[in-house]
Design a protein around this nucleic acid. Structure first.
Length: 575
DNA sequence: GCCGTTTTCGGCCCGACTGTTTTCAGTCG
């Protein structure tokens, strides 16, 4: 049996947390499992491998007990306590806790008293008014349960919204609110401010001379479908696209506290607060109270919050409790900016499945301030758009050379996005690949197989300069394929192959964690648009967002370099 | 279950809301 990947182990720990919670364990023990799940999910290496080496307790939140459980998992394929708890609590019990207002404690009570062990059983009991017989439950709860089923909450969790769409909606709300006469500052918070891949909802923080007026203006915006009953200083609304929006209005002298709090992440805030408590400080969304003086400090900016806590300013993209709180003041990375990019090494034209010509792409790239681009149409065996046969590619070489001559101010390079075959080999023969300036290789078929050998074989090829979208994920629709990223990074380093952060907003692949690991190992990272039209060249914004979340500086990203320096990093350039 | 320049034992973030309770536990963000 192959070693379980980190994602699988993390799921098992999360499941253990859920089950121990149903079992009535103290909250801190449950929290320990959830922390461990996060640590495993974000571990830079294979947790299975670390377990075999005996180094797994180096991960934060993994101690002796969890190490033993991991050893058992690797030896026997199961964790005994998990097997026992699964036999004790039907899986429907965890599903029941998806309903708002029903947590593990109360779900357990319904199971013990009425034998309710599934969403269906719960609904039936609510319909027949049996729930009110249980101590602690009443008619209101029955109504709530039925309302939740009617709203479809029980069926499945609402899909998350991709970042570009979320920011677009945020802008459509924030811009008019900023223009409203009653408003002061209006800022986006939450995971959208952290430029996460996708968001569950939007959090907006504002100050206002007349809060009710601003809340009313919010409720009347075109994009808002409906709002709940607004409070004095907060409103929750939903857009026509189904995205929930929380708007909070706050006094100007607390704006920074609230902005910091609602920017999160939750893990970041918890870590900040725990560290603060050790220094006699208590952080909340309303201020920082000091045990020594009894006073509470309010902050106008989120920078002031970090300053009071003795921390450097931490960019929102880093606020994930991934080591940012240990940064020395002068060690906060100067994160990559979109304007740092000088080249774009992955784009398509009408030769394959793009919508614009070589010239159109080049002129658009020039407009954006790029110094060099590579035209990388799909190769012959690719199923989308036109097949670029070897003869066709030879013609493309001439066309690209001509365009390069014709257009001043930008270097236009000929490349290909060659398909990686099942055996890890490219579509074109080496002679033809050798005539190109640049080769990026990607997987587009047979996603179900273990991809590690295939990718590593491709990287061994002397004319493959980079791997495109290395895990094949589509953020809300397709899981990454099975790939041992440790080995991929190791091989990339050994073979001098670059790894791409593909900027397509539903890909952002490599993701932030993998990109961080790869860059730390010393692998040159690419940030490419993968544009299929001139209007998509600015998509590098999303790749840059991922790079920033990966702690990358301009120096970590190969295509921030001038062409001559970039070329020296490629296999083609080193020949 | 983890963790330690206040600890190898006794801690482990903060606040609001809700429905059901007679003063609060559970849930949520």
């Amino acid at each position: 049996m192959p070693d379980p990947p980190n994602a699988t182990i993390a799921e098992l720990f999360d499941e253990l947390a859920d089950l121990y919670e149903l079992d009535g364990a103290v909250v801190h023990r449950v929290l320990a499992y959830r922390n461990a799940a996060k640590a495993v999910r974000e571990a830079p290496r294979s947790v299975s491998a670390m377990t075999r080496e005996g180094t797994v307790t180096q991960l934060p939140g993994i101690g002796k007990t969890l190490q033993d459980k991991l050893v058992a998992l690797l030896d026997t394929g199961e964790i005994p306590s998990l097997t026992r708890l699964r036999s004790e609590f039907p899986p429907g019990l965890i599903e029941m806790t998806r309903l708002p207002g029903l947590g593990p404690k109360r779900a357990r009570k319904l199971y013990d008293d009425l034998g309710i062990d599934s969403l269906d059983a719960l609904r039936a009991a609510a319909e027949t008014q049996k729930l009110r017989d249980v101590r602690g439950f009443g008619p209101k709860f029955e109504e709530q349960v039925l309302a939740s089923f009617a709203a479809g909450v029980a069926e499945k969790p609402k899909p998350r919204t991709l970042l570009p769409r979320a920011l677009e909606i945020a802008e459509a709300i924030i811009a008019p609110l900023r223009e409203h006469p009653a408003s002061g500052r209006v800022e986006l918070a939450g995971s959208a401010r952290r430029l996460a891949d996708s968001v569950k909802d939007l959090d907006i923080i504002a100050t206002a001379s007349d809060p009710p007026a601003l809340l009313k203006a919010f409720a009347e915006l075109d994009v808002i479908e409906r709002t709940g009953t607004p409070g004095d200083n907060a409103a929750r609304g939903r857009t026509h696209t189904g995205l929930d929006i929380d708007l909070r209005v706050v006094e100007p002298d607390q704006f920074g506290n609230l902005l910091q709090h609602f920017t999160g992440s939750k893990a970041h805030n918890v870590a900040i607060r725990e560290a603060a408590v050790r220094r006699g400080l208590h952080v909340s969304e309303y201020g920082i109270s000091d045990d020594a003086t009894g006073e509470t400090l309010r902050c106008e900016t989120d920078g002031a919050v970090y300053e009071r806590l003795g921390l450097p300013y931490i960019p929102p993209e880093l606020r994930e409790d991934r080591g940012e709180l240990k940064l020395a003041p002068d060690a906060v990375p100067v994160l990559l900016e979109q304007t740092d990019l000088r080249g774009d090494l992955h784009m398509h034209t009408t030769a394959s499945d793009g919508r614009h010509s070589i010239e159109q792409m080049a002129r658009a790239a020039l407009e954006l301030g790029l110094e060099y681009i590579a035209i990388t149409d799909h190769s012959a065996t690719h199923g989308f758009g036109n097949h670029v046969t070897p003869d066709h590619l030879r013609e493309q070489i001439e066309k690209v050379r001509a365009a390069d001559d014709a257009i001043e101010g930008i270097r236009v390079l000929i490349g290909t996005e060659t398909n990686i075959g099942l055996d890890g080999q490219p579509d074109y023969d080496d002679d033809l690949l050798g005539e190109l300036d640049w080769v990026i290789a990607s997987v587009h078929t047979s996603f179900a197989m273990d991809m590690t050998d295939r990718l590593c074989a491709a990287m061994e090829h002397p004319l493959i300069d980079a791997i495109g979208h290395p895990t094949g994920r589509k953020i809300t629709t397709r899981a990454p394929y099975a790939v041992d990223m440790d080995r991929v990074i190791e091989t990339a380093l050994a073979t001098g192959t670059m790894l791409e952060i593909n900027s397509a907003p539903d890909r952002r692949d490599l993701n932030d964690l993998h990109a961080r690991d790869a860059a730390r190992a010393g692998v040159p990272i690419l940030v490419d648009s993968d544009a299929h039209g001139t209007d998509r060249l600015p998509n590098t914004r999303w790749g840059v967002a991922t790079a920033r979340r990966a702690w990358l500086t301009a120096a970590d990203v190969a295509n921030t370099r001038p062409w001559d320096e970039f070329r020296a990093l490629t296999k083609h350039g080193r020949r």
